[in-house]
């Protein structure tokens, strides 16, 4: 199956294209394009499973190419090769949901091979899930005329920030539109999460003692359907790249963000959460984790965080039992 898989490489540098082609030619059907226009042509023509594009190219920048690829072929797993950290472009590409993975130049051939293999698997798995979901939807349509509309309450949102006033403000501001709670520390957040189902976590990543991405990742692993939004004053390319590569964050908002932007993001995130529940195929991250946990393996620190999270859960269930008895 894998030998039939088509992948597309995009770079304005022919030497890079030929080099990468040779890396993949034994295992995949490799297409190459020297720029955005050519790449989009190929994507329209061929069912491309994985696309790797250089960021810096004349004419169309890589993230723009990937953005358009997403529209043409939403299931194509998109990876961006960057040798040059263009912060604003990275953050905007994070928020546009264009990219599955950032790859830094110079890359390591083995890693790249693994990532492409994973990408292909994700593509196949998602196609499978989608087929199943579609069949289920069809069956539902024909079997029952009565459509039960479960009027769900607005999504539940957890704000996490070290700044107590900020949390208080956000909770007050959005308590009308969403079911909100707040936490000013990692442990507090874990307790909140154990108390009730949360659909969206809006968190800073700039904590004194804990790696923010690791913290969010721990949450993601325990509650795969939680949609994560980063709201931080740290505008940092490495962090943005990590937020995608390690976390598949939904949005990366840089403070000061207007309440309008936050509100809009929350609505979108809640929708996303509902979509995850309805159609798990859309949760690319979770799919990736089920296929290749070694590539998105939790770090040591994350494991420690998960232990803390579980401890919070255990503590809470114990107190609940006590209260009930």
């Amino acid at each position: 199956m894998s030998s039939e898989s088509r992948i597309l490489l995009v770079d304005d540098e022919p030497m890079v294209l030929s080099s990468l082609s040779r890396l993949f030619e034994d295992d995949y059907v490799v297409f190459t394009a020297n720029g955005g226009a050519q790449a989009l042509d190929i994507v329209r023509r061929e069912p491309i499973k994985v696309i790797i594009s250089d960021q810096r190219m004349p004419g169309m920048l890589g993230h723009e190419v990937l953005r358009q690829v997403k529209q043409i072929s939403p299931n194509t797993v998109r990876m961006l090769l960057t040798g040059y950290s263009d912060l604003d472009a990275i953050i905007s590409s994070v928020n546009a949901g264009e990219i599955f993975r950032y790859i830094n130049k110079p890359w390591k051939a083995d890693n790249l091979c693994n990532l492409v293999r994973l990408g292909v698997q994700i593509y196949d798995r998602i196609a499978q899930l989608q087929a199943k979901e579609q069949a289920k939807a069809e069956a539902l349509k024909t079997s029952s005329r009565i459509h039960i509309e479960v009027e769900e309450k607005h999504g539940s949102v957890l704000f996490v920030d070290y700044d107590e006033n900020e949390v208080k403000r956000l909770v007050e501001k959005f308590s009308k539109s969403f079911d909100v709670s707040g936490a000013t520390s990692v442990d507090e957040a874990f307790k909140e999460l154990a108390k009730r189902p949360v659909s969206v976590v809006v968190s800073n990543v700039n904590f004194a003692d804990v790696d923010g991405i690791g913290f969010l990742n721990a949450i993601r692993q325990e509650y795969p359907q939680v949609v994560t939004v980063i709201l931080t004053e740290v505008k940092d390319a490495t962090l943005a790249v990590r937020s995608i590569n390690e976390l598949s964050v939904f949005k990366y908002l840089v403070k000061p963000a207007s309440d309008d932007v936050i509100g809009k993001t929350l609505s979108e995130a809640v929708e996303k959460n509902k979509l995850y529940a309805k159609a798990p195929s859309t949760n690319v991250r979770q799919t990736a984790e089920t296929i290749a946990p070694e590539i998105v393996a939790p770090k040591v620190e994350e494991s420690a965080l998960r232990l803390r999270l579980r401890a919070a859960q255990a503590l809470l269930s114990k107190t609940n039992l006590r209260n009930e008895s």
């Binding site: 540098e13 030497m15 890079v16 030929s18 080099s19 990468l20 890396l23 040798g83 040059y84 130049k105 110079p106 890359w107 390591k108 051939a109 790249l112």
Partner: peptide, 9 residues
């Protein structure tokens, strides 16, 4: 970086 990338690859 570019030549370095493909040379390494």
């Amino acid at each position: 970086n570019t030549p370095l990338g493909f040379v390494r690859n």
